[in-house]
Design a protein around this nucleic acid. Structure first.
Ligand SMILES: NC(=O)c1ccc[n+]([C@@H]2O[C@H](COP(=O)([O-])OP(=O)(O)OC[C@H]3O[C@@H](n4cnc5c(N)ncnc54)[C@H](O)[C@@H]3O)[C@@H](O)[C@H]2O)c1
Ligand SMILES: NC(=O)c1ccc[n+]([C@@H]2O[C@H](COP(=O)([O-])OP(=O)(O)OC[C@H]3O[C@@H](n4cnc5c(N)ncnc54)[C@H](O)[C@@H]3O)[C@@H](O)[C@H]2O)c1
Lengths: 220, 220
DNA sequence: AATTTATTGTTATATGATTAACATTGTTAT
DNA sequence: ATAACAATGTTAATCATATAACAATAAATT
């Protein structure tokens, strides 16, 4: 067994932040590869992401990969190994729940772009949206959630319903067997431990910017 | 000087995570108030956000507020105090840079909804978008950035241009005197230390969900 | 009045993440 | 050959955050 490509035991429990960075490294490594760059140093990766080279080497160490001294890391191999960690063999299917302004924007952005993560359905309560196609994605009535989730093997929900409907929608998602939720609504959600929940809270992010702007301007 | 409402020295350096939670507490406290609830216990706040009561009390301690024993915190006072920390007296103005699908969605969502944080302009390079109004917000040509930023006292930019244009757009924003950037593009940006940068990386968030779903399903 | 209880406020500890220090080792230069 | 160098890989220290422990106390109960 080659030490070079064996995440095995260690990779079993990677730090959360390392996972985030791996996703980001990969995006930029793909660009490097497209430009014909075959090897890359830790300090180059670090520069792209505005972090320290040590951080990069540590992350790479944790996934059980080794670079070559004086030559750096093999871009292609590294991309592949990150893929082994982040992706499943056959890819996962996702659905957008709440095909409103944000939901449609997300469908347009993600649909058909990635081989290992595909948006295969939308769901909405609004009859005007139901059974229409958005960027190639069929919008189903929410009543058919369980049925379509099973048929289309959907494991991830992107939740973009109004805050007031988020709790109710989440319950349905859990019941339907969804395994992970990316929540865009500004409502704290409660899910059982076997469902992974990730939140994107744009309001808080914006208020945070405002706070630091205020702070920096030394005011009040 | 009342100890009850004096963040003074301590509040000068609140932990980043506390800032995030304060923003979230406030949102839900406002709802409580709307429902007529005048006092609230730390464990109630905790329950809403799925965190521990200790965490809540610690955050509240850090901002220099005190509750009443056996009665909890005064909802209105707490909201006000959080406002003192997060908001500026006169509010801050923001602009959406890149009035595409996501940018328009954000304009529609935020514009006119908040008194202390207002989207007052959009900017784009596309002549078809320039000088149109989106949800009451005027879209200016990007060439007028510096001028409009000064005139409208814009200190925050919400960056929603394509990844390939993000670096260039950021330089313009910094030049124009923007103080904080909320970046939605999946491109690592470089800003001088006096500009605060907050990133929302939806791709990474989604890949993270996929990773944990994969992990939980015990696969591969 | 004394005791119990429910709650806050604070200090101390543990956990997690980053950064620093340093040990290792091919490669290049002398 | 030997020394210097430029990189990686790992262990140790620091820093940030969350949790646990507990001290304080007003209110309720006896
Ligand atoms: N639009 C933004 O840019 C933005 C920014 C920050 C946060 N958000 C949050 O994202 C969410 C969506 O925002 P939006 O602007 O797209 O709202 P929207 O009103 O445009 O869309 C919401 C959609 O959800 C559907 N819906 C309602 N209840 C449902 C249910 N139970 N099941 C399925 N579908 C249901 C509605 O019919 C509608 O199509 C909200 O929670 C909002 O707070 C949006
Ligand atoms: N749409 C989504 O849901 C989504 C999801 C994840 C990430 N993102 C990111 O958000 C950004 C915007 O996505 P989108 O789908 O809205 O793209 P879009 O193409 O719909 O909009 C981009 C807008 O930016 C304008 N633009 C280009 N260069 C500019 C410049 N230099 N200055 C000002 N304006 C400029 C374009 O004219 C266009 O109107 C992208 O970086 C994308 O990667 C979007």
């Amino acid at each position: 067994m080659s030490a070079k490509t064996n995440p095995s035991l260690k990779a079993a429990n990677l730090p959360d932040k390392t996972i985030e960075r791996l996703s980001q490294y990969r995006r930029n490594l793909l660009q490097c590869l497209a430009k014909g760059k075959q090897h890359i140093f830790s300090h180059e990766i670090a520069q792209i992401h505005h972090i320290t080279p040590v951080q990069v080497r540590r992350d790479i160490m944790l996934i059980g990969y080794s670079g070559t001294l004086r030559k750096g890391y093999d871009v292609k191999e590294l991309i592949e190994l990150i893929g082994n960690i982040l992706d499943t063999q056959d890819g996962l299917n996702a659905a957008v729940v709440g095909v409103g302004n944000l939901g449609r924007s997300l469908i347009g952005y993600f649909s058909g772009k990635r081989s290992k993560l595909n948006i295969v359905a939308g769901f909405d309560v609004n009859p005007e949206k139901v059974d229409k196609i958005y960027a190639g994605v069929h919008c189903y009535p929410i009543d058919q959630l369980a049925e379509v989730v099973e048929r289309e093997r959907i494991s991830i929900a992107i939740l973009t319903v109004p805050a007031d409907n988020a709790t109710e929608a989440t319950e349905k998602l859990v019941m339907a067997g969804i395994k992970g939720i990316l929540n865009f609504s500004p409502k704290p959600l409660n899910v059982p431990p076997h469902v992974y929940l990730e939140e994107i809270d744009m309001i808080t992010s914006l208020e945070k910017v405002a706070y630091y702007v205020k702070k920096q301007s030394g005011a009040e």
